[in-house]
Amino acid sequence: MDALKSAGRALIRSPSLAKQSWGGGGRHRKLPENWTDTRETLLEGMLFSLKYLGMTLVEQPKGEELSAAAIKRIVATAKASGKKLQKVTLKVSPRGIILTDNLTNQLIENVSIYRISYCTADKMHDKVFAYIAQSQHNQSLECHAFLCTKRKMAQAVTLTVAQAFKVAFEFWQVSKEEKEKRDKASQEGGDVLGARQDCTPPLKSLVATGNLLDLEETAKAPLSTVSANTTNMDEVPRPQALSGSSVVWELDDGLDEAFSRLAQSRTNPQVLDTGLTAQDMHYAQCLSPVDWDKPDSSGTEQDDLFSF
């Protein structure tokens, strides 16, 4: 819950932080000083300027060897085509990944977070970031790969997607708890209302004896509580940590079903599988986004697919 609360507080303090972009060759504004600060901008989305290598189908939802083989196929196909790589912007948030063309600003792909089953910074092609997700059109699994400016960037994108998945799962947990509370309150309110109706004398007997209905007592009954809980029953509950912020979080049926399955089948359902080692994760978390744009010590960066 700490990640969720800190993310909400950060967004309320400075929503404009989320509009910064990394990996864009110096076009961005001043960047936060450390990885923790940038992680807090996830709610509205972190932007990464990358190059799209392509996509291939895979048979399993996750796995280092599986993704490595898929990336190898994608890279080989991209090299064989001889075409310049498409420059894209990857927007990562707890909602998922939005992929747009840098030149036309046209939407290429919009992947809900619950469809993503794996992401990684490839070991062999260490400047490549990739994720595996279920197609929104059918049940097939797709591996999408992107060329980053350097290994640090690939690791940073991988960690960002993993963190977005974690925050999304926490949102789901909060929403589920809130819905259970509202359902319980609604049920209790309905029981109270039913009890009051059972003990209320029939209207005919009131008229016969000349008694008047006590409207004041009726007004004191917990009807307002019942209506408050039943009027918006169809509205999706939102985490309290975000009250007053500009973010509107809505959970669709697909996300609810997917996270429910994860909660039942996995020990740590909030953790998205990645190909990063503990050492890689520690190294990337210690980086400032400013470091992502620094040239690798191995030599001059080449803006070309064939540089790796």
Score class of each variant (00 low, 15 high):
K123L: 15
A221H: 02
S140Y: 06
N232P: 11
N211Q: 13
R13V: 10
H137I: 13
I116E: 00
V167K: 13
D293H: 10
I113W: 01
D191L: 06
K62Q: 10
I12P: 11
N110C: 05
S245W: 13
Q139P: 12
C148R: 00
Q279R: 15
L85A: 00
D126M: 00
Q20S: 12
I113Y: 04
Q173G: 03
T160P: 00
V271Q: 02
L42E: 09
Q279D: 11
D37T: 08
S6W: 10
V174M: 05
W292F: 05
E180Y: 13
K19H: 12
Q285A: 13
A68G: 07
W35I: 11
G254S: 12
H125E: 00
V236S: 13
T300V: 04
L251R: 09
T38Q: 13
Q139Y: 06
T100K: 11
N105R: 07
Q270F: 04
S6R: 13
S205K: 07
G190C: 01
Q285I: 06
M124C: 05
E44H: 10
E178G: 14
P61Y: 11
A168K: 03
K166H: 11
G244A: 08
S307E: 07
L17W: 13
M233Y: 09
G54K: 00
V75G: 00
S6L: 15
C199H: 08
H28Q: 14
L31H: 12
S81D: 15
M153L: 15
Q264R: 01
V271G: 02
T36D: 14
P202E: 14
K79G: 01
L17H: 14
K83T: 13
H137G: 14
D2G: 04
I113N: 01
E33R: 10
A263P: 03
Q270Y: 14
A228H: 08
S205G: 09
A76T: 08
L17M: 13
E33Q: 13
S227K: 06
S265M: 12
A156D: 07
F129W: 11
S6A: 13
Q20W: 14
H282E: 04
R9T: 14
Q173S: 15
L85V: 03
A208R: 04
F306M: 11
E40H: 15
T41C: 14
K72M: 15
P239G: 03
V290S: 07
N110I: 04
L213K: 10
K152C: 14
S298A: 09
E33V: 15
K294R: 07
W292M: 13
N211W: 03
S307P: 07
E40T: 13
E216Y: 07
L212G: 15
L50G: 06
L141S: 10
V157Y: 00
E257M: 09
L66Q: 15
P15L: 01
G210K: 04
V226L: 12
P269I: 04
A3V: 11
V157H: 00
I116C: 14
N268C: 05
T149G: 11
C119G: 15
Q60P: 01
S93W: 12
A219D: 15
I132Q: 01
T231P: 13
G254R: 13
I132V: 04
V157I: 00
Q264P: 02
P237H: 10
V271E: 08
D253R: 13
P239C: 11
N102E: 08
T274Q: 02
S224G: 04
S260G: 10
L206Q: 11
R29A: 10
R29N: 11
L272C: 07
L141I: 15
V75F: 00
S245K: 04
Q86C: 10
I116K: 00
V226T: 06
L262D: 02
S81R: 11
S227G: 13
R261P: 10
A70E: 04
S288A: 15
L223W: 04
T120P: 05
H282D: 15
E44A: 13
E142H: 03
L255D: 02
L11V: 12
S140D: 13
Q60T: 13
D198A: 09
V88T: 05
H125L: 00
P269N: 04
A263T: 10
S260V: 04
E180H: 07
S224Q: 10
R261G: 05
P201K: 13
V226Q: 14
K83W: 02
F169C: 03
N138G: 15
L272P: 03
L17V: 14
L305F: 10
N110Q: 14
D303R: 05
E109F: 02
